[in-house]
Structures are given as structure tokens and as C-alpha cells.
Amino acid sequence: MKIKEKIKIREIVPFLSLIAVIVFFEIVTNGTLLTLKNMKLIFNQAFVLIIGSVACSFIVAQGDVDFSMGSMVGITAVCAAWVSQVAGGLALPAAMILGAVLGIINGILFVKFKIPSFVVTLSTLMVLRGLTIFIAGGGSVSVPFSLYKYDSFPLKLILCIVVILAATFCFNYTKLGKWSKAIGSGITAAHQSGVPIGKMRLFGYGLSAAMCGLCGFFNMVRAGSAATNTGNFFETDILIALVLGGMPLSGGSTSKIRCAVIGSLTLAILINGMVCWNLNEKVQQGIKGIIFLIAVWLTFDKKNTSLIK
């Protein structure tokens, strides 16, 4: 009974935090936060974060991590920008396919060579950033103006809803999600139950990186260019969003797609709210850190400390 109670509380804390953040900033910004214009802005800023963290949930649910997501976004954006200069319509598929391939390579290094996921992805973080610098050549690759139309609020909203619904369905009602959570809950038990652990890990990294391709494309059309530092610190933002949303980093059955959505929105509102409130920038960093620590403290399952496989 007590354990159930703990889990329930842990589940509602992110909701409460999101509401608290909204109420607090709505008050201190004198109603600026919840204006329609600003809410659209927050969604625009949270869009890639939501897509990225939803995709990353399939990895985190297995108890693994992906530190290469920022570089993945960078390299897919730069390649998509080059492709867009030849054939605009191929930019998005190119970014997603390249992402999926790179993600599967991450997965192969992890599964076949038995290198821990944080080592693999930290390495690819650096390798891919180096490759991005090489591919970008002059540093920044511009995008044809015709592609700017894809930086559209309705398109992003529809896409976001579709991704969240599809991910929630997969996560809760298909083997993909159930197996992912089973691996996170206990790899030995999952293995003995016939869960194809290697394939699931390949799927997780492939999916996450393909979605990074999608994020790279939207980052590219948002900025009108892709540069060597496109996607910088994206992996950190994803991690913060997941933790703020209450996603257990140890993975397992308590992992939820809604954690990714709530966390991404909380982070985006926090960043926007602090600027709207004209808060000192040095203090902003400190506050983000404190909130992150509190979120980890409240949602982290202290009994399961084997965080990263």
C-alpha cells in the first residue's frame, strides 16, 4: 500500500510542478505568460523538445541513455540543409534516414560490442560533432527560402499531436513499449521471458535518432540555416525535460510518455517565463539547476540506483 502511495505521489509531482510553474509565472509576468501569442511561442520552442524527449523515452524506459542527440540533430540538420539546396522535398526524408542509420550504428556498438550506452553515445556525440563541422564546411549552411513555410504553427501542432498519440499507443499497447519497459524493469527477467533485448535496443536508438532527424529539419527551417553548433546541448535539455516530467532514469514500468510531454512543457515555460519576468540571467542558470535537483530528488527511485547500462 505504501509503495503504491509513493508511486502515485511521484506521478502527480510533475503535474503539480507544471501547474505551479504556470501559475507562478502568470502572476509575476502580469498575465503575459498565458496570452495566446505567448502560448504559441512556448509551443514553438517546446516542439523539438517534445519530439526528442518522446522518442528518447523508448531508450530511457530500457534504462539506457543517449547523449548523442544534440550532435545527431546537428549532423542531420546540416545534411538536410545541403540536400535542400538541391531538392527541397528530400531534406526531411534525408534527415530522418540519416538519423535512423546513425542511431542503429549507436545501437550496434552498444549491443554487439557490449560497450555501455553512455560511453557509446558520449563518443558519438564528439564524433558526429566533428563530422558536422567537416560537412558544414564554411560553418553555416543556408536553407532555400521556399522551405521557411514548414516552420508553421499548425503543421507543428498536428505533427506533435500525431507523434504523442502514436508514441503513447506504442508505449502502452504494443510489444514495442511493453518490452522496452520490461527491459528497464529487469533485463534478466525480460531475457528469460523471451524479449529480444538486442533488437529492442537497436529499435530504441534507431527511433530516437530518426526523430532527431525530424528535430534537425525543424531546427533548420526555424533558423533558416544549419550550423556547426545546431542542436548544441539538446541532449542536456532532453535529460532535464525527462527528469522534470518524472521519468525514472532507471527505466521500467513507471516510465510514461506523458513524462516527456510534461517535462518539455515545464522546461519551455520556465525558460520563457524567466525571460518575460526579466530575471537576471545568472540567477536563471542557478534556478534551473535547483529545479532539476529537486525534480530528481522527488522522482528518483532511490532503491533502483543502477541508472545507466
Partner: peptide
Amino acid sequence: SPESQITATENLIA
């Protein structure tokens, strides 16, 4: 990054 410069501008406008 370039996209974060856009975000920074948007937030200042907001």
C-alpha cells in the same frame, strides 16, 4: 546555436 538565437529573440519580444 542559430535556433536558440531565434528563441532568444522571440522571448525578448514576448
